[in-house]
Design a protein around this nucleic acid. Structure first.
Lengths: 184, 184
DNA sequence: ACCTGAACACCGTTCAAGT
DNA sequence: ACCTGAACACCGTTCAAGT
């Protein structure tokens, strides 16, 4: 039992140390340095997180979970068009608040944690529902699926990140919404 | 004089070795490995390219130059709306053909080569002209400047890269054009 | 003058040795 | 069982030593 508690503590310390670096604007996440920050040996760090990518996914899991929740709420919105717009707005806000989410969500590679795969699947299902409802009302172009939405919102985040303009996020989101609304 | 010729040969060999790695899908560009590929010592490699970033910018210079040429042609297009659409289409094509261009164009950091800074400046001027003419005809939203266009097209490239769908590029470009056309 | 490659500081990851 | 940290293979960059 103490082992279990210890293990959980190490995991929490690793995540806290990593998040502290992310908060400081450093997305490198070097395992050696984070292990030292957390006060554990490198080997222990690797027993908890099989790779740098696994640590990254664990960091992003909370934001990704929040996005899933938002998407499922959007899928239940009485007004399909509102649900769709809210989904994109929430996604961009979460992406901007947590830079690790952008790395995990934009990745074309398969996830290395099962939890990430599961969250991705739930997200895809919810977004598909949001799109189906919006499409049924004719408020979005028909040639866009859930994966397109994932890629496009990550693209908007990338564009926002490529500069320092404070108002860019709202403007780019507006451009994307207008582009998706437009008739084919 | 032979020194000059030698120097040019080393530079060309470095660029060829680097481009070969890029062609093979590897964007890491490790100086040590590329120096070895090119048959020169690491020190010599660094005498020609002050840093990895300098090598990257040198690689991207050709594509960036082509983009400038395209943008200047677009600025002279008799039909402003056509010039604008052509510019975005050409930019995305160049970004997709040369992955190093995306890295250099999307960077929020200042360039490390003067040549890159110059090309960026010429690009900005040409795109500003394209936008001014399109705006005067009322065919694009007025709250978008040349830097927004740079960031947005890099965002589209990022979205295209985040998946494997063959038709994504054309679709995403169409979405961006529709979004920019839409009235405010 | 220009080149070379050993060297330094780093980083991801592994594993023999300890408790 | 679990932990540690030395060790390996790497990479960016520098610089003393050669030509």
């Amino acid at each position: 039992m103490t082992l279990r508690a210890d293990s959980a503590r190490v995991r929490a310390q690793m995540l806290a140390a990593a998040r502290e670096r992310v908060r400081a604007g450093d997305l490198d996440l070097p395992m050696n340095a984070i292990a030292k920050d957390a006060g554990v040996g490198v080997g222990t760090a690797y027993r908890h997180f099989a790779s740098r990518q696994a640590l990254l996914e664990a960091l992003a899991a909370q934001s990704l979970g929040a996005l899933v929740t938002d998407a499922e709420a959007a899928a239940a919105d009485p007004e399909p068009a509102t649900g769709f717009a809210t989904l994109l707005r929430d996604a961009l806000r979460l992406l901007r608040d947590d830079p690790t989410l952008a790395l995990v969500l934009a990745s074309a590679q398969p996830a290395c944690l099962d939890a990430t795969t599961d969250l991705h699947a739930r997200l895809g299902a919810a977004v598909t529902t949001v799109l189906a409802r919006a499409r049924a009302e004719g408020v979005i172009r028909p040639d866009v699926d859930a994966d397109d939405v994932r890629r496009l919102i990550c693209g908007v985040q990338h564009a926002v990140d490529a500069g320092t303009d404070a108002g860019a996020a709202d403007r780019y989101l507006d451009i994307l919404l207008a582009g998706l609304r437009a008739a084919r």
